[in-house]
Simulated assay, not measured.
Amino acid sequence: MTCDELKRIPLISILNYLQIPCTRMNSREAWLRNPFNGGNERTASTKVDIHRNIWYSHSEGFGGNNIDFLMKFLDTDDLSIVLDWADERKNILSFHQQTVLDKVQNVQNENKQSYSILSIKPLGNKALIDYLTDVRKIDLEIAKAYCQEIYYRTAKGQNFFAICFKNDAGGYELRNSYDKRSLLTKGITTIDNGSKEIVLFEGFTDLLSFMTLKKDAGKSYLNTNFCILNTTANLEKSFPFLERHPRITSYLDTDAGGVKSYQTLRKQFEKTHTVKNGMEELQRRCSEIKDVNDYLIFSSSREQNQNIQSGRKLSNR
């Protein structure tokens, strides 16, 4: 079996063969508990985009296509092992493929739209603002400049609201204290400030955290261009925008998915562009951080402790 042939097999059919159940599924996406730790989690964190046939595990911080999934599931970096595994099961996978396609078609017929957007408005909801400023430590003025709040209803009649961040494909990345998801089309977000330098992030909370850190330090945060992947599975989609910039600074997450994506980035651009890993500097200051928002929270906590210590010294005088 070739790589292209394997990529064309619906991932849902591979999951069906592996007896990995989906906790919920509609005509566009399916959710399952982390398949790389035996599904040992209370809330499903791995999403499959049925139309694009890609997946992303929020708990692992990693995603990709069928090959990426099987490499991780089979715990191998050897592509030939994955292709041999798929080739030995191609007849069985073909059977499961038809079964799953029938199931997806039924879901499409029964539930053509799993949600409806009720309204999108400027960010002002106290619960969402508290989440951004108190939990995430993000500057409110910056958050309001790049985010909105969205209200939507599921097909079952449940109403939800969240912070939303628009991508270039017309979709929205959603966050609140309890959930992390996308609505409409998944895509990258680009911000062009007319600079020859670009800073790359995995998620929009890291963008907002980066800007907050710059603002707190009295530095400009609009002197570069920005690209937000919204999932590492979108890395290749960012290449046309990234290649326009001679200098690329990456702030991708420090987990396995982020590290692999940074390696791919370097391989793509290191011969023609200046590529820098900005997370290395942040990790020298705090080795335990996973992303830029972690560092912002760490910095805020350290500053607060210093202020407390300073207050104690003054009170003892």
Rank of each mutant, 00 (worst) to 15 (best):
Ile120Cys: 07
Ser27Phe: 07
Ile163Pro: 02
Ile191Phe: 01
Ile14Ala: 14
Phe69Glu: 03
Leu213Asn: 09
Asn167Tyr: 05
Leu235Ala: 02
Asp75His: 10
Asn305His: 10
Ile228Trp: 00
Trp55Gln: 09
Met211Val: 00
Val104Gln: 11
Asp78Pro: 04
Asp294Thr: 06
Ala127Gly: 06
Asn26Asp: 11
Lys72His: 14
Leu123Cys: 01
Asp130Val: 11
Val104Trp: 10
Leu123Gly: 01
Ser59Gly: 10
Thr2Ala: 03
Arg247Pro: 14
Asn307Lys: 09
Tyr251Arg: 02
Arg153Met: 12
Leu11Thr: 05
Leu207Met: 08
Arg24His: 13
Lys237Ala: 01
Leu222Asp: 09
Gln263Pro: 08
Thr232His: 00
Ala233Glu: 00
Gln105His: 09
Glu281Phe: 05
Cys22Glu: 11
Arg136Thr: 00
Gln19Met: 09
Gln304Gly: 06
Leu242Tyr: 05
Asn65Gln: 03
Ser94Phe: 14
Arg247Gly: 14
Arg28Lys: 13
Glu173Gly: 06
Ile297His: 04
Thr2Asn: 08
Ile289Met: 12
Met1Asp: 07
Leu183His: 03
Val82Met: 09
Lys90Pro: 14
Gly311Val: 02
Ile297Pro: 01
Tyr151Phe: 15
Val292Glu: 08
Lys72Leu: 13
Lys126Gly: 12
Ser238Gly: 07
Ala155Tyr: 02
Tyr295Ala: 08
Ala233Cys: 01
Thr99Leu: 15
Arg266Ile: 11
Leu213His: 08
Asp102Ala: 12
Leu140Pro: 13
Leu79Gln: 05
Ala162Gly: 07
Tyr221His: 11
Thr264Ser: 09
Ser182Met: 15
Glu288Phe: 12
Ile297Glu: 05
Glu88Arg: 13
Gly157Lys: 02
Glu88Phe: 14
Val107Glu: 12
Phe36Pro: 14
Phe161His: 08
Ile228Tyr: 00
Arg42Lys: 12
Ser300Lys: 10
Ser315Asp: 07
Asn277Tyr: 10
Gln97Thr: 14
Ala86Phe: 15
Leu79Pro: 02
Val259Lys: 14
Glu197Cys: 09
Arg285Glu: 14
Asn230Lys: 03
Leu32Gln: 06
Lys219Pro: 03
Gln19His: 14
